[in-house]
């Protein structure tokens, strides 16, 4: 087995990869353009469908492992009063190759893993993660809303991906590429590609990442948040927030969920759905008491959770700087701007 961590892919490597992997019975998930300007991860059987140029997928990678809605169990009331419960089986163990997520989305899986795999191990999440290989395409042109470098990432970051692909031509991935193997899973992926890839020649290095200025310092942000819970900053910064869930739902690390039953008279399903701490009902008790009654307290929670509580609990920030929340915000709000402001406050 080759020990070289860098491989060169010939110009039709992607085509070949999709064909080879599909033929081997694997599911290949890749970025495709459905509507003009909208790229999302969907199943592909040919490389032609893969979007060549895109900033990032509209929906984050997390949905491949933590779907927007999923069945947990099905139930049926029998005539004798008994209830039949059918626990939803685990996802099929077929291998899944995600071919072309962005480095930020791959890094975000580290945050998701922390949540779904501490103390209790979420079996469906685990099954989907175990069967998947993440092949990330390095970013060549970060969008104006991107801020990965401010939260410890990079357009060429390799955290979370099994293989990181650097385009050597103009395209992100279509032409000649360098493939950087990060894990054993990544090595297996390379092995499957046969002669379409070969160990990179001596001295070949990945291109340098595109410039993306750091906008704030997360340590300073954390330091201010440590003391800033009662600051009147929150009321001001939250005034324009409309309380929708677009930022959370498009966020690659937001993981809050709801569990609901949906049923007809005698049968139904228990489902898990994405939920969002910005919604006013999120913490509302049946008694009417709401620990976070105002929008500003919910906005504060979202930021505190990502940049203070989560790092304290799990040792990492729950944000990868993908910029989706900024692109999606109805009111033009920017998390990066808020954090830049927080950073400035800390530094006086």
């Amino acid at each position: 087995m080759p020990t070289n961590k860098l491989y060169e892919g010939v110009s039709d490597w992607l085509q070949s990869a999709v064909e080879t992997l599909s033929a081997a019975g694997m599911t290949v998930i890749a970025p495709t353009q459905g509507e003009p300007g909208v790229v999302n991860l969907t199943r592909v059987t040919s490389a032609e469908a893969i979007a060549e140029r895109y900033d990032n997928t509209l929906l984050p990678l997390k949905g491949q492992f933590f779907p927007i809605t999923e069945t947990l169990l099905e139930f049926e009331r029998c005539e004798d009063g008994d209830v039949e419960i059918q626990t939803e089986p685990l996802p099929a163990p077929d291998e899944v190759i995600v071919l072309g997520c962005r480095p930020c989305d791959a890094a975000a899986m580290g945050t998701m893993d922390k949540v779904f795999q501490w103390d209790y191990d979420d079996v469906r999440y685990r099954a989907r993660r175990d069967r998947a290989t993440l092949v990330a395409f390095a970013c060549t042109t970060p969008s104006p809303e991107c801020f990965c470098t401010s939260v410890g990432g990079s357009p060429h970051g390799d955290e979370g991906s099994d293989v990181l692909v650097f385009g050597l031509g103009g395209d992100d991935s279509g032409g000649r590429v360098l493939l950087k193997v990060n894990t054993d899973k990544g090595r297996q992926f390379i092995d499957r590609l046969g002669d379409r890839v070969r160990p990179a020649s001596e001295g070949v290095q990945p291109p340098s990442p595109p410039e993306l200025a750091r906008r704030f310092d997360t340590d300073a942000v954390k330091a201010w948040l440590d003391e800033g819970f009662d600051s009147d900053f929150w009321q001001q910064m939250a005034l324009s927030c409309l309380g929708c869930g677009a930022c959370s739902f498009l966020c690659p690390t937001c993981h809050c969920f709801d569990i609901v039953d949906e049923a007809t008279w005698n049968r139904g399903q228990r489902r898990r759905n994405w939920d969002c701490c910005s919604f006013s009902l999120f913490t509302l008790h049946a008694s009417g008491h709401n620990p976070r009654p105002e929008q500003f307290s919910r906005c504060r929670q979202r930021i505190m959770h990502k940049f203070k509580y989560f790092p304290e609990r799990f040792g990492r920030i729950a944000c990868v700087g993908c910029g989706r929340c900024i692109r999606a915000c109805a009111a033009g709000r920017s998390l990066a701007e808020v954090l830049t402001e927080v950073d400035a406050r800390q530094k006086g």
């Binding site: 929906l59 309380g243 929708c244 869930g245 959370s248 498009l250 759905n273 969002c276 109805a330 009111a331």
Partner: peptide, 10 residues
């Protein structure tokens, strides 16, 4: 639809 309710909130 992802049920983010942005349409409603705006």
């Amino acid at each position: 639809c992802i049920r983010c309710y942005a349409c409603r909130q705006v």
